[in-house]
Design a protein around this nucleic acid. Structure first.
Length: 918
RNA sequence: GGGCGGUUAGCUCAGCUGGUUAGAGCGCCUGCCUUACAAGCAGGAGGUCCACGGUUCGAGUCCGUGACCGCCCACCA
């Protein structure tokens, strides 16, 4: 009764129990280690969870990302490092506001009716009720994060940090407010950053419009546009100063059709003589290029649309029309007046709002920006320069490394970052505008009066900050910045960032900019040991993370992106309940090769659920034997056990695999690591090792006990090897191994196997390979001869003296695993015997009266012969080549010579067999 | 308009700095309920590594060109 495991592996019966246990026991909580403590001396591993949106629920992409992080984290933790995985959620400005607005709409009210304060209150309530779904789901999936350190980006302390950062950047001259053309979503009613605009190919039209000259209304200058409605705001027509066609028109005026406004013809190099007529209409308030032309020429800026892209009072007769209605009307009116010179098909890229897919409208408005290329007023590097150098100087390593180039290119072309949003939910910008002097006071706390003029008529800026502004700060604000905390000292820089490329620029790049800036002097809190920092070390210690691993995307089985509208979303929780978390995790890990998106296929999970089942049953097998002899797995293996080949072999394999897994996980090759542990457990341990030792287990009790002791060591080690990948099933079995009294509260706190080279035994592995080869060959022969599965057959073997010795020593193994009655060693070649199998190492024949199918055997042999002869020709071609011999390394030449000899031998044997087949 | 990735077994994917016979899982075929596991065991079939050219003693691997698929970035009317 000691090692009780139910007969059937049922993940749903064990997983919720352990998930709850891990959280309740606070197993993954990391207390801040006091200076000098033992924990403070361990290597530190810190990982910040990319904070999911409060509004969100877990999708396959999360589960994949979390699985990778959890494997890495559990691995490091089991290697004895001080391992902190920090969770939290993001307030997700636009997304959350939308959700609540929708809820209000269903109640027949609206944000506007509620008013700002009540609305924000409502969002907080909403968050209380519906927020944090993802975190609950993560708990169920066993993510080993430190739940005691959970944060929310709108928490008081983090909000204070946001204000602190804003004020400092403002004081350094790196935040400014100004009226510029920004990307504007007419549906969301807010500015968005360049990154939040997604470009799409669009088969549109290019309209050519005639603008009559003022002095000579019969003459026209023709301009082209894809957005004719913007002409209402035109304030000039530009031509290239070198364009001879227009030289004499520069300085003259045209009458803007429909608006009947006089606007000048100006010369500007922006106008491309090659494009269209070479003349371009200039709308400074509705186009970024035109805005700049306007600046150069001091043109008026006429805004003709409101925040929802309806034509406003500046649009004359078109006032009140939606932008596309206006377009149709304007085209019709132009045509009527004979001013529409032509319409051409024209494919161009239109920008859509990343969130709601509405076509964005460039809009002139007053916004707040972060100057990324400007040096701070008090000296030092610009944000972009520090962020660039952090990577070029290798303070941050990015995997796969092609993202390094992508990142650097982006950083090189980066524009100032528009950080203000015309929303209500978010961090409100800490700036107060004065109604009297119209100046702005930026302050950490609400100022009593206007800074410049002392007026009391001040009002806080209504805009809030881009959500990414606050998330960019998390690596240091979650650790206590701007205070010189012990947490910052111990856990910063974080070790690793695991994320998807979709937020490379949104988040990763901004964290690097902000991290480097605010963890570098003068913004760096003075931490113990900082005095020793100088030169490149300063930047090295300022980066938000030392490594970045960019993972692939999870798609559906047909490589389609999973999306709700397509209806191909796989719910991780549902799939987990069906197959078990361990199986799904293992599937994800085994498919996680870098750079390749995952085509997530349910049939693949089936295979890994079978693997979990295999582990379960192996455990039951071990426990069954153990309980029969009343043994314990944890008693340690008797010395003599390592004299046995199969033990040296499995121990060698165990150490080799552990070592390879360490390497693979270090390189983020989750697929390699998963495949190796799978192959080891199923292939080596179950298929061969357990089968080999079964007779000992069924034999005398002392023998069984000795065998079990060794087996137990390997098995328990294998559980620890598997644990980062399959935490639930290994936890369950591990506790059973220790009969409910484990040395640690969890296998997750036990040590990951530490491979030792001295146990890696090449000779044992080679000998086992020979034995396996022989067994497989005999099995093949028996199947080929259609021997009844249970009938034992004698075999004859012709081989070298040392292999004969090996076989004699392991006679029992061969007899049992190949269903052999007896082995007879013969000194003469068996190649002439019909139905013999020949390898370079041995020739074997199964003695059985049934006739071989001569025709089939002949065909097989001829096929084999042809293949081998091809290989031999190839090999000889090389070995006979002087150039090869002189240039190739000796190792390769020698290998090839051996191969040649083996091939010759084999070919000879097969020819003999064929002759005898006759 | 720039830049990046992919094309290997029926399917999904490995294949490290070129080097001995290109691998895995699933699927498929054959035979087995062998007292841990039929979610299993044993055996097997299946590949002109997208095409062409080049470098090399040697190319799935490096270089060039092309085809097809996918992605990212971009203020040309």
């Amino acid at each position: 009764m000691a090692h009780e495991l139910p007969k059937t592996y049922d993940p749903s019966a064990i997983e919720p129990r352990w998930a709850e246990y891990w959280v309740k026991e606070k197993l993954f909580h990391v207390a801040t280690p006091p200076p000098g403590s033992a924990a403070a001396k361990s290597p530190v591993f810190t990982l910040l969870l990319p904070p999911p949106n409060v509004t969100g629920s877990l999708h396959m992409g999360h589960m994949f990302e979390h699985t990778e992080m959890d494997i890495v984290i559990r691995w490091h933790r089991m290697r004895g490092e001080l391992t902190l995985w920090l969770p939290g959620t993001d307030h997700a400005g636009i997304a959350t506001q939308l959700m609540v607005e929708r809820q209000l709409a269903s109640e027949g009210t609206s944000r506007q009716k509620l008013g700002r304060e009540a609305f924000i209150q409502r969002v907080w309530e909403w968050r209380e009720h519906y927020g944090g779904t993802i975190l609950r789901q993560m708990k169920r999936l066993g993510a080993s994060v430190d739940w005691d350190r959970e944060y929310f980006t709108m928490d008081d302390n983090l909000s204070q940090c946001v204000r602190e950062v804003f004020v400092r950047l403002y004081e350094e001259g790196l935040i400014y407010r100004g009226t510029y053309i920004v990307q504007w979503c007419p549906r969301c009613g807010t500015a968005i950053s360049d990154l939040e605009v997604k470009h799409e190919e669009y088969a549109g039209k290019l309209y050519q419009i005639r603008y009559p000259l003022k002095d000579d209304p019969e003459q026209f200058i023709t301009v082209a546009t894809t957005r004719p409605e913007t002409m209402l705001g035109d304030t000039a027509v530009a031509v290239n100063p070198k364009d001879a066609r227009y030289t004499k028109l520069v300085g003259k005026k045209v009458t803007l059709p429909l608006m009947e406004r006089e606007i000048p013809i100006i010369a500007d190099y922006f106008a491309d003589p090659q494009f269209g007529s070479g003349a371009v209409k200039v709308t400074p308030a509705h186009d970024p290029n035109d805005f700049e032309i306007g600046q150069r020429h001091n043109l008026p800026q006429i805004t003709v649309m409101d925040e929802h892209a309806r034509i406003n009072e500046n649009g004359g007769a078109y006032k009140g029309l939606d932008r596309y209605e206006a377009r149709e009307r304007i085209l019709k009116d132009l045509e009527q007046r004979g001013l529409l010179a032509g319409t051409k098909d024209h494919t161009y890229a239109i920008g859509k709002c990343d969130r709601c897919k509405t076509i964005v409208e460039p809009r002139l408005s007053k916004q707040w920006f972060v100057a990324v290329n400007k040096e701070p007023a008090n000296g030092g590097m610009s944000l972009a320069e520090a962020a660039t150098r952090a990577v070029t100087e290798d303070h941050i390593r990015i995997t796969p490394d092609n993202y390094r180039t992508i990142y650097l290119q982006w950083m090189e072309n980066i524009h100032d970052w528009c950080i203000s949003r015309q929303l209500w939910w978010g961090h409100r910008i800490p700036a107060w505008h004065c109604a009297d002097c119209h100046k702005t006071t930026v302050s950490r706390e609400t100022p009593p009066k206007c800074g410049p003029c002392g007026s009391g008529k001040i009002q806080q800026e209504t805009d809030v900050l881009d959500t990414w502004f606050s998330s960019a700060l998390l690596p240091f604000t979650t650790l206590g910045w701007p205070q010189p905390t012990r947490d910052l000292q111990v856990f910063y820089p974080t070790t690793l960032l695991i994320t998807g490329f979709d937020i490379l620029f949104f988040w990763m790049a901004r964290m690097i900019m902000m991290g480097c800036h605010f963890m570098m002097p003068p913004n760096r809190p003075h931490l113990p040991g900082d005095d020793r920092l100088s030169g490149p070390a300063i930047l090295r210690e300022s980066v938000p993370f030392r490594e970045v691993y960019i993972h692939a995307l999870v798609r559906d089985a047909d490589r389609q992106k999973m999306s709700k509208t397509k209806g191909n979303v796989i719910d991780p929780i549902a799939i987990t309940e069906k197959y078990g978390t361990d199986a799904v995790r293992f599937t994800l890990a085994s498919m996680a090769s870098p750079g390749t998106d995952i085509a997530f296929n349910e049939s693949r999970i089936d295979g890994y659920r079978a693997f979990a089942n295999k582990i379960w049953n192996a455990a039951r097998f071990v426990f069954m034997n153990l309980d029969r002899v009343g043994g314990s797995l944890t008693s340690g293996a008797p010395e003599g056990e390592l004299e046995r080949l199969e033990n040296r072999w499995i121990y060698s394999r165990f150490n080799r695999v552990a070592s390879e897994i360490n390497k693979s996980l270090g390189d983020y090759r989750f697929d390699e690591a998963a495949n190796m542990v799978y192959q080891f457990f199923w292939g080596d341990f179950c298929d061969w090792y357990l089968e080999i030792i079964k007779p000992r287990l069924l034999g005398p009790e002392a023998e069984a006990r000795a065998a079990l002791a060794f087996l137990g060591d390997v098995f328990e080690g294998a559980l620890r090897l598997l644990s980062p990948f399959m935490p639930f099933i290994t936890e369950e079995i591990w506790h059973a191994v220790y009969e409910g009294k484990p040395p640690k509260k969890s296998i997750a706190l036990a040590r990951f196997p530490e491979p030792d080279q001295k146990w890696i035994d090449g000779a044992a592995e080679e000998q086992m390979a020979t034995l396996q080869e022989l067994i497989v060959n005999i099995r093949y022969l028996r199947a080929d001869m259609k021997v009844e599965p249970k009938v034992k057959t004698p075999v004859r073997i012709h081989t070298s003296a040392d292999i004969q010795k090996l076989l004699e020593e392991n006679r029992g193994m061969v007899e049992r695993l190949a269903t052999v009655e007896s082995i007879e060693f013969v000194s003469t070649s068996l190649a002439h015997v019909a139905g013999a199998r020949a390898t370079a190492k041995f020739e074997v024949v199964v003695v059985f009266e049934r006739k071989v199918d001569a025709a089939a055997e002949g065909e097989r042999l001829r096929k084999e012969l042809k293949k081998l002869e091809g290989q031999l020709a190839n090999t000889q071609g090389q070995v006979g080549n002087q150039q090869f011999l002189s240039k190739a390394p000796a190792r390769v030449v020698e290998g090839l010579r051996m191969q040649e000899a083996e091939l010759k031998l084999l070919i000879e044997k097969i020819k003999k067999s064929l002759d005898n087949l006759g």
